[in-house]
């Protein structure tokens, strides 16, 4: 029997997962649910890519302060993703611009891609989950 610390390396297949985030953070539960699923996939050492488009770009807006509305501010958790080796974060250019935002407004470093580049990235994935 192996010791628990010898189970460290997970032997299962690694697949390319893309999570597409299209909703604003607090109006619905989608953003938080997506983040939790991403953390689980990352804990199982899957190849994870995150996309923020449409209102999803608001999930990673800086300076969120939910004290007055009584719900948990989960935006700091996006900064933990690097420690989970989730480093492929993409934001759709058109979504950012139509909302008057720039990458300076975001809590994490991201790569900005346009519609067409995003379409190609999607074609490269094995599993795409949309929230």
């Amino acid at each position: 029997m192996s010791e628990p610390w010898e189970d460290d390396e997970l032997d299962g297949p690694v697949r390319k997962f893309m999570y597409v985030n299209r909703r604003a953070p607090y109006g619905t539960i989608y953003a938080l649910e997506s983040l939790e699923v991403v953390l689980i996939a990352a804990a199982f050492e899957q190849d994870v890519t995150l996309v923020f488009m449409d209102d999803g770009v608001y999930q990673i807006k800086k300076d969120q302060n939910t004290d007055a509305i009584g719900v948990k501010n989960f935006s700091p958790t996006y900064r933990a993703l690097e420690g989970y080796d989730v480093e492929k974060l993409y934001v759709e250019k058109e979504s950012l611009e139509s909302r008057g935002l720039t990458t300076d407004d975001l809590v994490v470093p991201v790569q900005v891609v346009n519609n067409d580049q995003l379409a190609e990235l999607m074609e490269e994935q094995e599993v795409i989950l949309s929230f």
């Binding site: 953070p25 302060n65 939910t66």
Partner: peptide
């Protein structure tokens, strides 16, 4: 509504 602006990190 101000509290909803602050929650979303908007200014």
């Amino acid at each position: 509504l101000g509290p909803d602006i602050a929650a979303r990190g908007m200014s």
